[in-house]
């Protein structure tokens, strides 16, 4: 049984259909990537899984149990961490407060403290800026904070929405290295990216979204080699 199963999900914003019949699955321990152009529905898919938007129909199951009727805070408690599009750090709160809020669902202070240490080992830059307001961080640092904050809930599945957006090539490398590390430590990852090449390079499998529909689904290696995918998302005959 897959850790996450999405089956035939439709989502609409008012009368505008955003997703039709989306189905995907993420197995325990995998990195799965969801690629596609702007507006294809990648973010909407993650928002539906998190409960931020309610699908019209379909099923979303996590570890065998139904997520559809849960509120977003209950979804977090089930073990899904979500680092949202645009980072959405709490700009007027300090880095430390942001990370502490990431652990909002957890009670054991000692475990939280050790996870905080863990996050600061992954992102030493955040350690230097703990008392700084998150709004004063650079874009790359805010991205680190958003990922670190999502990790603080100790999720079984970590969903990352465009973690490389707007970062320098060097930082993009760092972020993808970190994602590999997080995966190696046992956390399953669902990665939404426009940077298809890099995402497929670290993922086991991938889904390609086009205007609300999944048009390709394959192993990352096959998608990287596929002519159609190369033409559309990997910069042509690279």
């Amino acid at each position: 049984m897959a850790l996450l199963e999405v089956e035939g999900v439709d989502v609409a914003y008012g009368r505008i259909r955003a997703l039709s019949r989306i189905s995907l699955r993420v197995e325990q321990g995998e990195i799965v990537t969801l690629i596609g152009a702007n507006g294809a529905g990648k973010t909407t898919t993650l928002r539906a899984i998190s409960g931020l938007i309610r699908p019209l129909r379909g099923a979303i199951r996590f570890d065998g149990s139904d997520l559809l009727r849960l509120t977003p805070d209950q979804v977090v408690r089930r073990g899904i961490g979500h680092s949202p599009e645009g980072r959405r750090v709490f700009a007027r709160m300090t880095v430390r407060e942001n990370l502490e809020l990431g652990a909002f669902t957890r009670d054991r202070a000692s475990e939280v403290a050790s996870d905080l240490k863990g996050v600061l080992t992954i992102f030493p830059r955040l350690g230097e800026r703990l008392v700084q307001k998150a709004g004063t961080l650079s874009g790359g640092e805010q991205q680190m904070l958003a990922i670190g904050r999502a990790l603080m809930s100790r999720p079984r599945l970590l969903m990352l929405d465009e973690p490389s957006l707007g970062l320098s090539p060097l930082l993009v490398q760092t972020i993808f290295e970190v994602i590999k590390r997080i995966s190696a430590s046992g956390t399953t990852v669902l990665l939404v990216e426009q940077n298809a090449h890099q995402a497929l390079a670290i993922a086991q499998r991938g889904y390609v979204l086009e205007v609300g529909k999944i048009v390709h689904e394959d192993s990352a290696a096959n998608l990287l080699a596929s002519d159609a995918v190369r033409a559309a998302y990997l910069g042509g005959a690279a």
């Binding site: 805070d73 977090v76 949202p84 959405r88 709490f90 909002f104 669902t105 809930s153």
Partner: peptide, 25 residues
């Protein structure tokens, strides 16, 4: 306090607060 911080977080960004596991209701 934790609840006070949850209030500030909800005031700043309701969606992000929910993704932290905060029940905004």
């Amino acid at each position: 306090t934790k609840l006070g911080k949850a209030m500030r977080a909800t005031a700043q960004d309701r969606d992000a607060a929910q993704l932290m596991g905060i029940n905004i209701n």
